[in-house]
Design a protein around this nucleic acid. Structure first.
Lengths: 211, 211
DNA sequence: ATTAAAATCAAACAGTTGTTTTAAACGACT
DNA sequence: AGTCGTTTAAAACAACTGTTTGATTTTAAT
């Protein structure tokens, strides 16, 4: 039988339903019904709904971050002692989500929403992952932007992440507003635009007030 | 008696609890208990919980958008036939939320979360407000950036809004990550940084690939 | 003071929630 | 064939949800 594991079927179904309808608003009954499993299966395999949520997240987010660090490691090895080009740092930060989007369009929307989730534990799961990336990106950007005060750099990284996350989560709004001109049929193109935008923002001249 | 209206007390309490704990996860019982009113008062004054949610939103979001348009109108009148400086357009887009934050720190976090709310009606309430601002900003930025293809401009506005919203919603994360270096004690300074970042992003050179 | 509308109250309603329980079925191994 | 741990099944549980009801109080105008 080519039938998939109940456990994995639950993960897939939950991921989709969570992304479409929200975590709190999706009931265990909906998930198990759609997954064709028994109501009790969620508690059996994941011990609670919360356990299922965490499993859905863990399955995707760790590989995503791994890929970012992989790319950064590679680029850093190539660069040797010279500072990494900003564009490459941004590529390593942003591009791995492309692959994730292509193989699973649901998760990024879910992730984007969870970053500002009111549930502190859920929020922390994502935030702690971003913490690591954030610090690594900071360390790499500092030599690339030596004239920038640290606080200013940190704010700019924050803005960059914001632009990235919002693009993940709300690109369908832009498609509406632009009358269909801006859609992510070519997601690579979109990432190119985003990197270009953020690179310019990171390199921006300091206004006299702050300087 | 200097006692406040039950209706308004419900709005205030709901706003705070929604922001802290989420809309779906905050029960009518919590709200009415904390507001010191009867359980039925929400249904009496707002006909349903959903009605209360909409009232909470409407009370803040309309003045916010009004202020944006006011500023843009003023600047446009001053500028006459010359294109508006990008910095001023961005100021009109971003700065009104400062005042809102100062007098009510809760709402912006709530708003930032609702923009990507899975409930389509709630999402639309915010999205439709942003639609108007988006189009106005587009019309003003086009003459200011005449060499930019429209699709590229639209994407960049989208990135700008993303940076703005994420900053509203998640600045407390940055405060943690920066070890307290970046906090919004001076929110005006933060807005200055954000405008500076986005202006550079909007003005960025087109890479050869897209050009 | 009387009257009618507006507001509040306690109580109950009907439905959904995540979780637990107990029994049955399955699959692999001796 | 029989025994073991693993998985699935149906049903019930206790708690919580938004909403409604009908009586009571408060408020304001005549």
């Amino acid at each position: 039988m080519a039938e998939i594991d109940t456990k994995e079927r639950l993960l897939d179904t939950a991921e989709r339903l969570f992304a479409e309808g929200g975590v709190k608003e999706t009931s265990v009954r909906e998930i198990t019904k759609e997954a064709g499993s028994n109501l009790a299966s969620v508690n059996y395999h994941f011990s609670s709904k919360y356990g299922l949520i965490r499993a859905v997240i863990a399955r995707r987010i760790e590989p995503l971050n791994m890929r970012r660090f992989e790319l950064l490691d590679t680029y850093e090895a190539e660069a040797g002692d010279t500072p990494l080009p900003i564009e490459r740092i941004l590529y390593a930060l942003i591009a791995p989500s492309i692959e994730m989007y292509l193989e699973n369009p649901n998760f990024l929307r879910l992730a984007g929403r969870m970053i500002s989730d009111p549930d502190k534990d859920l929020h922390r799961i994502f935030a702690s992952q971003l913490d690591q990336v954030f610090l690594r990106v900071r360390d790499l950007l500092m030599p690339a932007l030596p004239n920038l005060p640290e606080s200013e750099l940190l704010w700019r990284i924050h803005f960059t992440i914001g632009a990235m996350i919002h693009t993940w989560t709300n690109h369908s709004d832009l498609e509406l507003r632009s009358g269909g001109i801006c859609k992510i049929t070519d997601i690579r193109e979109m990432v190119g635009r985003l990197i270009n935008f953020c690179e310019a923002g990171l390199k921006a001249e300091l206004p006299d007030v702050i300087k």
